[in-house]
C-alpha cells in the first residue's frame, strides 16, 4: 500500500459542549478513494470539518503528506492542497458560476488553465457558466461545488455526501466524475448511499458514535453482510 496522504490519529472534537468525535483514526493512501461510512450523527461530517480546521480537534493529530496540519487555520490548510466539498454544497448563490470558480483560484489564471478540464468533466456547465449559481438545479449545484475544488491543483479532495438529494441519473454522472478525479487526486468521501460508495471506493472506514470502528478494503466489506448490517443498517 502506498504512503498515506492523510492520517487522522485519535482525534477528539467538541462542538460547543458536545463531544462529537471521541477517537477517530483514518488513513487515506495516495491515489485511493476512501469512503467514510456510518449512520447519521456518527461524526463523518465533523471529521472532514476537523481536517479542514473548521471544527478544530482538541486532541490527536492530523497529518497531510506527513506534516501536521491540526491547529492551522482553514485557509492555510486549503492552501496546502486540500479541496473541500461540503455537505449541502455551500455554493455562493448570489455569485455567477464563473465567479464561484474564480473565487477558488489560488494563483492568477488558475481557472483559465483548468477550465477545459472542468468543462470536459461537466459539459453542461458550459451552458450555465454565466448564470447566478442560485438558479441552478441541485445536481448542477453539486457539479459546481466539485468543480470549485478542481480550479487549484488540490492533491486531496474531501467530498461530503455528493449524492444527497439527487436523482439517480445525476448520481451516475457524479460517480463518473469522481472516478476521473481519482486519477490525479486522492479522495476521502463521505457517503450514505452504500451502493454508490461500494462502486466507487477502494477503501472504507466505518464511524459509529464518534469513533472509527473498522477500516479496510472495499471488496472485503461488500462480502461482510454482518458488518454492513451492524454498522450501516443496510441489508
Amino acid at each position: 500500500m502506498s504512503a498515506p496522504v492523510l492520517e487522522i490519529r485519535n482525534i477528539h472534537t467538541f462542538i460547543g459542549q458536545f463531544h462529537i468525535l471521541e477517537g477517530v483514526n483514518v488513513s487515506v493512501p495516495q491515489g485511493s478513494i476512501t469512503v467514510m461510512l456510518g449512520r447519521n450523527g456518527a461524526g463523518k461530517t465533523t471529521t472532514l470539518k476537523s481536517v479542514m480546521g473548521l471544527t478544530p480537534p482538541s486532541q490527536g493529530a492530523i497529518l497531510f503528506e506527513g506534516k501536521p496540519i491540526h491547529g492551522k487555520r482553514p485557509y492555510h490548510i486549503a492552501q496546502l492542497g486540500i479541496g473541500y466539498v461540503p455537505e449541502h454544497r455551500a455554493i455562493f448563490k448570489t455569485l455567477t458560476v464563473r465567479e464561484n470558480l474564480e473565487l477558488a483560484e489560488r494563483q492568477a489564471h488558475d481557472l483559465e488553465k483548468r477550465i477545459d478540464f472542468i468543462f470536459n468533466l461537466f459539459p453542461a456547465m458550459r451552458q450555465f457558466y454565466h448564470y447566478p449559481a442560485g438558479n441552478l438545479s441541485g445536481g448542477q449545484q453539486q457539479m459546481l461545488a466539485i468543480a470549485r475544488v478542481l480550479v487549484p491543483e488540490n492533491r486531496l479532495l474531501l467530498i461530503d455526501e455528493p449524492s444527497e438529494g439527487l436523482a439517480p441519473v445525476i448520481i451516475e454522472e457524479l460517480m463518473a466524475a469522481i472516478q476521473k478525479l481519482a486519477e490525479t487526486s486522492t479522495v476521502l468521501l463521505v457517503e450514505q448511499n452504500f451502493r454508490m460508495a461500494s462502486r466507487l471506493a477502494d477503501r472504507y472506514v466505518i464511524l459509529d458514535d464518534g469513533q472509527s470502528r473498522v477500516e479496510g478494503v472495499m471488496p472485503e466489506l461488500i462480502k461482510d453482510e454482518q458488518l454492513i448490517q451492524r454498522y450501516l443498517g443496510v441489508a
Binding site: 473548521l54 487555520r73 482553514p74 448570489t94 455569485l95 464561484n100 474564480e102 477558488a104
Partner: peptide, 25 residues
C-alpha cells in the same frame, strides 16, 4: 474585482470562503 467577489461571497458564507484558501481575517 476579486476582493469584491470575496466580499460578496463572505456575506453569504464566510466559513466556506476560508475553506477555499482565502484568509478571511
Amino acid at each position: 474585482t476579486r476582493i469584491g467577489i470575496i466580499i460578496r461571497a463572505g456575506v453569504e458564507d464566510r466559513q466556506m470562503v476560508e475553506a477555499l484558501g482565502i484568509n478571511v481575517q
